[in-house]
Design a protein around this nucleic acid. Structure first.
Length: 412
RNA sequence: GCGGGUGUAGCUCAGUUGGUUAGAGCGCCAGGUUGUGGUCCUGGAUGUCGUCGGUUCGAUUCCGAUCACUCGCCCCA
């Protein structure tokens, strides 16, 4: 039995659901194109280094969630757990420093060996964008504006909340890390076990602990703002005033920290309360040092990724598919398929069953939500005509066979 | 990775205080209508009661393990 089940945390997308996914993806891509983005397709696996070097040794993604295996050449290969590292690698591999600034959109499956829950799968799908080569906070504003545009067009404007924070430049970050560590160390024994670990590995994460006791301690922690260099503060100020100017609603959350090590300056998250513990629906930030860290020319970047499954669970109305025309043969199926083919060549959506009497075929047409049925009866056939039934009104007409395309052309 | 819940027909779920033919609604199939769907009526099929093992004369029911889903934590899209 186990071999007939999909692997834990994976699942099949049947046509109805895959339609929703496709719509989410296409909506995101269409918006991204309006902002000048082109699609990049990178491999879904990379040498393990690509991820382990960039995501940080302390992140869970690297320490316990990667699908890593050795291939037949003895290389360590990893199924991509996120999109940015692969894009950064492709940027370097292809010498794209030539063509900055660069706006890239991507989509596709990601893999993380986590414990599955609703909205959390081992194979899931993301859409994302990366804007490379722009130092200015205008890039942050535009990238967040694109995220907001995508969510709005999916009808989720009222369901999500944008939280934003700055992690500062490396100088600010280091300074803050020190003051925060000093502060938290005083309360070390009062912290939860998880947070004591965080304190050692990545103290910033203590800030968004859900533990009550931790929260009380964190409330009085020195805020990040005080450790920011003037330049970092000015940068963040530009980002927030840019968003305000575009009328994009947001709240600043000084405790927002991103999990992956490569982020700096702007960090943001769109969250919902509708998905339980998996409330983050789209998230991103700036990563000015990532490409340099990988061995490429220092190139600033900012981007985000969104979970297609999570978005698709929130989306209500997916535009309905085109309603087909159903062909109903009365005896000569080959003649019927020829008629179907004519209409399809003319660009129409045409459905035709492979068996059954007329009643059954009409029922099928109805189930397919067909707009019209083309009935190929003997009587009309003798006059080189067909009957066209409007399935909404129940009215039907006889139309000469030769006029079919023209007839439907007028209706559409 | 840690802790809790659940697992009966394609779907949503009843049920069996352990007993021989396991149910409903929806869906599906057929008929009422030899050339007409959506409504209605009639009839029908469907389950290794998640899997493996244990206890028992007997297990879908009790016990154990396992797998999957699910809720929370960790973390994240």
């Amino acid at each position: 039995m186990s071999s007939l089940q999909p692997v834990r945390g994976t699942h099949d997308l049947l046509p109805d659901e895959s339609m929703r996914h496709r719509w989410v993806e296409e909506t995101a891509f269409a918006a991204a194109r309006r902002y000048g983005y082109g699609e990049i397709v990178t491999p879904i696996f990379e040498f393990t280094d690509v991820f382990s070097r960039t995501l940080g040794d302390t992140s869970d993604v690297v320490t316990k969630e990667m699908y890593t295996f050795t291939d037949r050449s003895g290389e360590s290969i990893t199924l991509r757990p996120e999109g940015t590292a692969g894009v950064a690698r492709a940027f370097i591999s292809n010498g794209l420093a030539q063509s900055l600034p660069l706006k890239l959109f991507y989509r596709g499956p990601m893999f993380r060996h986590e414990r599955p829950q609703k909205g959390r799968l081992r194979q899931f799908h993301q859409v994302g964008v990366e804007l490379l080569g722009v130092e200015s906070p205008v890039a942050d504003v535009e990238v967040i504006a694109l995220a907001w545009r995508v969510l709005s067009e999916l009808g989720l404007g009222g369901k999500v909340r944008l939280e934003i924070n700055t992690l500062g430049d490396s100088e600010s970050r280091l300074a803050y890390r020190n003051t925060l560590t000093a502060y938290l160390s005083e309360f070390r024994s009062a912290l939860s076990e998880d947070s004591r670990n965080r304190l050692d590995r990545n103290p910033l994460r203590v800030l968004d602990s859900k533990d009550e006791g931790d929260r009380r301690i964190v409330e009085n922690a020195p805020p990040m703002g005080e450790s920011l260099t003037p330049a970092a503060r000015e940068f963040f100020e530009q980002v927030t005033s840019g968003l305000a100017r575009l009328g994009i609603p947001f709240i600043t959350n000084p405790r927002l920290v991103r999990g992956l090590d490569y982020y700096c300056h702007t960090a943001f998250e769109f969250t919902t309360t509708a998905l339980g513990a998996q409330g983050t629906v789209l998230a991103g930030g700036r990563y000015d040092e990532l490409i340099a860290q990988m061995g490429g020319p220092r190139t600033p970047g900012i981007g985000w990724a969104a979970g297609v499954e999570r978005l698709s669970m929130l989306v209500e109305a997916v535009p309905s598919a085109l309603r087909p025309i159903s062909i109903i043969p009365m005896g000569d199926d080959l003649a019927a398929v020829a008629v179907a083919e004519r209409l399809r060549r003319a660009g129409m959506v045409v459905d035709m069953g492979f068996s059954g009497n007329m009643k059954k075929r009409m029922a099928r047409a109805n189930k397919a939500n067909a707009r019209f049925a083309v009935i190929l009866g003997e009587e009309e056939g003798a006059r080189n005509a067909v009957t066209i039934r409007d399935l909404d009104t129940g009215l039907q007409d006889e139309v000469p066979l030769a006029m079919l395309e023209e007839h439907f052309g007028r209706l559409v």
